[in-house]
């Protein structure tokens, strides 16, 4: 089976986590041009990421997953505002609270300890300058090396990723989509950061290129021993790269488990549906689809936000919000049908 090649045993859970997100809430607050509303894009999310672990975040469009990672890396611009909770990283044994840092301190952490790979790699690479300038602008100030040593390190890093050092002298438009994305990954990892956030890094790529890029990401992650926060809506990508997956629905974390557990024995009805509805080559059994539509974050349903579409919905689901509780070791789920209704 081809996927097995990419799988590594999950990192030990005992180690001190690199990232602790605690009861994080972030809303879009707008009151202008005749509108006045809160969009609860991140609503009470807690999670931890261990060293060397790839933590996947899955969710549909406008489920709040992109807002979640923006909030985690501290890229908060109005109208987005953090309403509650904390985000703490552990870099080199030192705990850094993202929201307690000054912008200058945040700047020194970026690239060196924490870096991002985003969907549109063209945005990072300046379209009118050779790629070497992007390396110089972003990575050089954080490496603390003399120019000669810096370029030597960059070339060694590119070689490690099977990239021709000639890309340094190319312009972004001269590279194919896959090459551009690999170059962005090289740029994001050249400072060997402890934590890497990837948002839909392969979504715009073709199937064959996507597989190459995912293999490369998994490979570099294993070599650097970094932790990853990997966001994508595509469950088969999570099956391939993530050690653990958290499922986000309407701004809340509804289930979290190690990837094989999630695919074999999901507990939340939404996760069960996501897994069951994936079409597979060689399997023609009928795939059902969920009724209803993903809820609006501006006006989410009461109680459990999934209840209008849930086949197991009970009366309590309409009134109370189920907490995310540990249903089995390292398997958390927010569903009254699993945890039992509160008395």
């Amino acid at each position: 089976m081809p996927t097995a090649v990419l799988q590594t045993p999950p990192a030990p859970a005992a180690a001190e986590p690199v990232l602790v997100v605690d009861r994080l809430r972030a809303y879009y607050r707008t009151h202008a041009f005749g509108l006045d509303r809160d969009i609860r894009a991140v609503d009470d999310i807690s999670l931890t990421v261990a060293p060397g672990e790839v933590y996947g975040i899955a969710g549909e469009s406008s489920s709040g997953k992109t807002t979640l990672i923006k909030t985690i890396v501290g890229a908060i611009r109005p109208p987005l505002a953090v309403v509650g909770g904390s985000v703490r990283f552990r870099f080199g044994g030192e705990i850094r609270d993202i929201y307690a840092l000054t912008p200058a301190e945040l700047q020194t952490i970026r690239w060196r300890h924490l870096s991002c790979i985003l969907q549109g790699s063209m945005n990072v690479l300046n379209p009118v300058r050779q790629i070497r300038h992007s390396f110089q602008d972003f990575a050089f100030p954080h490496m603390g090396l003399k120019p000669a040593a810096f370029w030597q390190a960059v070339r060694a890093h590119l070689a490690r990723l099977d990239l021709d050092p000639a890309v340094l002298d190319s312009y972004p438009h001269q590279l194919s989509g896959g090459m551009r994305q690999r170059t962005t990954i090289a740029l994001a990892t050249v400072c060997t950061p402890e934590f890497i956030v990837a948002d839909e890094p392969t979504t715009a790529l073709d199937v064959i290129v996507q597989r190459d890029v995912l293999t490369m990401l998994r490979d570099i992650q294993r070599r650097l021993g970094s932790s990853f926060l990997f966001v994508t809506h595509d469950m088969s990508v999570h099956a391939t790269v993530s050690d653990r997956v958290g499922i986000v629905y309407a701004g809340r974390l509804v289930e979290e488990a190690e990837t094989p557990t999630l695919f074999r024995g999901a507990l939340h009805p939404y996760t069960q549906h996501l897994v069951a509805s994936l079409p597979r080559i060689g399997d023609t059994t009928r795939r059902a689809s969920l009724p209803g539509r993903p809820p609006s974050l501006a006006d989410p349903p009461s109680g459990c936000r999934f209840h209008p579409r849930c086949p197991l919905a009970m009366d309590v689901c309409r009134e109370k919000v189920p907490a995310l509780v540990e249903a089995a070791p390292r398997h958390r789920v927010a569903c009254f049908a699993v945890s039992g209704a509160p008395s």
Binding site: V207, R211, V237, P260, I281
Partner: peptide, 13 residues
């Protein structure tokens, strides 16, 4: 063949 092999299969038995 290459296209089919590149399809990510979410199979955990």
């Amino acid at each position: 063949i290459a296209l089919k092999q590149a399809v990510l299969t979410p199979d955990f038995g």
